[in-house]
Structure formats: C-alpha cells, structure tokens
Amino acid sequence: MKNLITVSKYAFLELYKSRILLNVLILGFFLLVMASVASEFTYGVPEKVALNFGLGLLSLSLVAVATFMGATLVSREMENRTLYMILSRPVDRYVFLVGRILGLSGILFVNALILSIFTLSLYLFLDGKLSSLIFHSIAFSYLEGLLVMLVVVLFSLFSNTVISVLFTLTIYVSGHAIEAVKSTSVVKVNKLLASFIDLYSTVMPNFTKLNMKRFVFYEDLVKIDFIASSYAYVICYCLLLIVLSCIAFNKKELT
C-alpha cells in the first residue's frame, strides 16, 4: 500500500511538472473568454450557453488529456526504460501500473476542478442557479475521462502510441453515437445489425450513459435510478479495465 501511494505520488508529481496543468489553466481562461463571448449572442439565456459551453469544454479537455497522457503513461516508461529502475525495487507490476493510473487520475481531477471553477464562476456571475445535476455532470465528465484513460492504457500495453490513441478515439466517438445509431430506422429493420449494435454497446464502453450534460437544464427528464446505474456502470467498467490492464502488464515482456 505504501509503495502504491509512493508510485502514484511521483507519477502525479512528474505529470504535474510537465506543465500540463498550465495548459489547462490557459484553457480555463480561454473558456472564460469564449463562454462570455458566446453568451453575448444569445437571447435571454446567457448563463445556459455559458454553462453548456463550459461543461462541453471540460469534458473535451479531460478526454484529450486522458487520451494523450494515458497513451504514454506506461509505454513511455517502457521505451525510456525508466520502469526498470522502479520494477527492480520491491514493487509489484500491478502496484506500479495502478500507481501510475492513480497519478494521472489525480491530474485529471485537478484539471476537472480548475475548469469547473472557471465554468461555475461565469455561470454564477451570469445569475445562473446551481443544481445537483450540474455537479453530477462534472463528476460524470471526470469519470468519462478516467474511462477513456483506462481504455487507452489497456491499448498501449498491446500496441504503439499512435494506434492506441486512434483506437481509443474511435471507441470514444462510437460510444457516444451508439444510442443514436440504435434508434435509426436502418438498425430497427435489420435484426442482425441490431443484435450486433446491442452486443457492441454491452461489451464496449457506452459513453451515452455518462453524458449528463444534456439533462442539466431538464432535470425532470432524468431519474435518480438512471444516475445511480450510470455511476455503477462506469465504476464497474473502470474496475474491469484496471484488472485487465494488470493482467496484461503482469504478462508483458519488458524487453
């Protein structure tokens, strides 16, 4: 346990010192300016536009950081041989992997925190009213980032960085589109295709379940059961990916 904390602490420190959070801060200011400008072009609902804009950018920023930093989280250690120095110590491979994941999760958390503060500040400045769903939406954006990170980490254990990123982005986009695809008439009339889409949405991450942004201003449309089941879904999926990654990393030849 002590070594897990040590690995995650130094993974966080290493990523933090790579100035990624400085970029997030700059993005935050950009968000503030763009949201302010965008809200000026609306009629009567500037706070809604500001919040939608902020939550959207928060989600995209988390996915981008998770994808690009997750793809090199372990693979760069293997390429640079830095992990030899760590794994020759009394540190199990799974401890190392989970520690690195926790370190990046910390970075994603700080990222989410900074952009949420910017978004909510502007929203409140424009007389917006807080609701629990806004916080759920931020939490789901963070969990979505975690899920994307775990997908890319798993891919990076089998493939190179570029392919891992491409696969992950494909899964991310299709995971968001899957529910919309299900409702198309082409799928509805083709039973085989419908079964395939059902299977795909069961096996692969279904990001539609994590998209709470669409309900932020329509709280009546979402039930607490749906939110709870979405939390359970993403947490179970994350745990499954961690276990799979640990198994793969334990078996990996660190040549």
């Binding site: 290493e14 010192k17 640079n80 041989r81 830095t82 020759s88 110590r89």
Partner: peptide, 19 residues
C-alpha cells in the same frame, strides 16, 4: 525480499526528466 537486497543499474539509464 530478494529485490529489497538487490541494487540494479540498467544499461543507458534514463529517469523522469521533470523530476
């Protein structure tokens, strides 16, 4: 336990550049 008692220096060592 063995790893605790071992010191290892890899070929062409490279460490975390930002630390």
């Amino acid at each position: 336990e063995v790893r605790k008692s071992i010191g290892y220096f890899p070929e062409r060592p490279y460490f975390y550049p930002h630390l």
